[in-house]
Nucleic acid binder design. Structure first.
Lengths: 348, 348
DNA sequence: CCTCAGATAGAAAGCGCTTGCTGCGACCCT
DNA sequence: AGGGTCGCAGCAAGCGCTTTCTATCTGAGG
């Protein structure tokens, strides 16, 4: 049998109520009593029963972090930052919360199921990271869930995801559109006119916004190609490799490739090299996110830096109620263009 | 007020017991009744109270995954694989478990606190990934915790971590020593005699084992240098960069650098390039793990591939009781030497 | 010396769910 | 037809904790 509060109480010769109060430290207990209780806890190796405690107190110390792909550093970095602010263990006193990250794998159903699971656990807060799916029925379902969660007192924060109106969720949004535009404008300024674009999966806000930025820049310079030079794929290097081959097939005279993110850009570089093209002499390549490895590629990658860790930390603090939400519940976080070796003027 | 089981029962005109049984599906319920209940659940938008359920059933559907650094793909990949087998939502029926990953940040205290938190929640299983700290008191504390967890019925699996004797934990261990030896032997076979080694943080089993493999290979060829050409650092690129500079300072005539992992190797490459050295003509570089980006570096990285995803999946299945533990509760998983462009014969 | 406020500790009523046991028709067998 | 089964539903006893309310004891104030 496991040790219960009552056992501790018996051993310390006090009532269970007192033990509970010592453990929660939210009620005056005489120092001598407290010490006796603590000793008993120690001797019996007592561990509080979480479910029982949550049930009785009608609160929980669980905080959920939803990510699309935990194997992707993009999410890993945000999750790490969020978690470190949530406190988790080792954080500031009192706030000993269990920050858990849930991997949706980009699947709408899993996202929904995880939200339900967290709702079940009466989570204290939920942070959703990364782009949202744009599938209409699903979006509505998620919005409904979020609304219900906030109504139930769970703080909901979106980090790197567009606002969800009328759900009570706080949103820290990345300016993907602006970043995309800036990046493409940089390329156009260098003299590029035939730019390929490797977009992420369809029906994702991140994908759409970055692409819109790109198209906006093209349009501003009369270069819009109606998406002829755009290929969709996943957010991984493999996809970048294949998409680049496809772009090259469609338009052998391409002088620049803009990728949905850095991993994709990496795959693009590999494909270009395998095709015998030099970077950036023959073809320029640009990514997005500025993940840690991007500065070390050869040549180093021109990209848009997103303050992933900062945004995550802020989201975490807001989720913990330790920082004021932005006015209106919405903040837009801008990226910063990082011009590096992978982009240059087009070959003549 | 939130909706409770009783509300649903009233609406469906059945007893709470019946509703519970419908929801858990572990007891015969007439189809018509079930349907009535399900309709009521739907209409009331009822969500089970997790803590109450866990308390009454004395079980929980939480599965904890401990990682040292969630921002590191090494852990992300394993966590992702584990989680996908845990089922999480969307997994096979019945096993709807909440797989949560906890980021210890490599801190012993946090590791311990997370274990306590999971113990509190009466987690169904716990998977610890990656190397363990070798700090003796802490190791003992962790071992004690693990023992207590398994005694309480929590399945404990170690993935990529050395066995913990007498704790009831199943261990899937990576053969870091063997991989390290093989790698260095490859370099020696190429003709290298002055090899630098960038080790990971001290007091980690992974660090020690990889280093031991390296030293064993050196010793086997009479090249042991008593650690003169070994520098310790963190498991990230920055650390690799700095350590390489240090190695170069100590031994400008170095012909090869072996890194603790691929990220470190990346930093090493950057440092060498900045020092005007070519890879592999002037200096060969090798990593460990074979993370996804490693094949795309320029030149592509010679490394030891660890079957992270496979190991994680297996650990996940074992944790779920869906696969037999290996005989003796211990399995050693070997890495595979991947010889690529970053290693070659030494310059004359 | 008595009363009253202040500080602690205890009693007990749940929190919302699960589950062993009981109850009750319907059905089958001899 | 009577007894035994089987299938399905309800009763009620907790699960281990939190928290309100009450009891007790001290010392201060009148």
């Amino acid at each position: 049998m496991t040790v219960t509060l009552a056992d501790v109480a018996a051993r310390a010769q006090v009532s269970p109520a007192t033990v509970s109060r010592v453990l929660n430290g939210n009620y005056p207990v005489a120092a001598s009593t407290r010490e006796r209780v603590l000793r008993a806890v120690d001797e019996l190796d007592y561990v509080l029963n979480g479910p029982a405690s949550s049930l009785a107190a009608a609160t929980s110390d669980l905080v959920g972090i939803l990510v699309n792909d935990i194997a992707d550093p993009f999410f890993g970095i945000m999750a790490s930052a969020i978690q470190s602010e949530i406190g988790g263990p080792g954080g500031r006193a009192g706030g000993e919360r269990l920050a858990v990250v849930c991997n949706t794998g980009g699947s709408p159903e899993r996202e929904l199921t995880y939200l339900t699971l967290l709702q079940r656990q009466r989570a204290a807060a939920v942070v959703l990271t990364g782009g949202a799916m744009e599938n209409a029925p699903h979006a509505a379902a998620v919005a409904a869930k979020l609304r219900r969660l906030s109504e139930a007192g769970t703080r909901v924060v979106l980090c790197g995801r567009p606002p969800a109106p009328d759900t009570g969720a706080i949103a820290l949004t990345f300016d993907n559109r602006g970043g995309g535009r800036e990046l493409t404008e940089h390329l156009i300024a260098l003299g590029h006119r035939r730019l390929g674009y490797i977009a992420g999966p369809e029906e994702r806000t991140t994908t759409r916004h970055r692409l819109e930025g790109h198209r906006a820049a093209l349009a501003a310079h009369g270069l819009d190609d109606d998406g002829k030079r755009t290929v969709h794929g996943r957010y991984d290097r493999r996809s970048g490799y294949e998409a680049t081959l496809e772009l090259l097939r469609r338009e052998p005279a391409l002088t620049a490739v803009v990728a949905a993110n850095d991993s994709v850009a990496l795959g693009a570089c590999a494909a270009l090299r395998d095709a015998g093209l030099r970077i950036p002499e023959d073809v320029s390549v640009a990514g997005f996110d500025d993940l840690p490895f991007s500065v070390d590629t050869v040549p180093s990658l021109t990209t848009v830096r997103l303050p992933l860790a900062e945004a995550g930390a802020r989201a975490g603090r807001i989720a913990m109620g330790r920082e004021e939400p932005p006015p209106g519940g919405i903040a837009t976080i801008r990226g910063e263009l990082m011009v590096r070796g992978s982009t240059g003027g087009p070959r003549r």
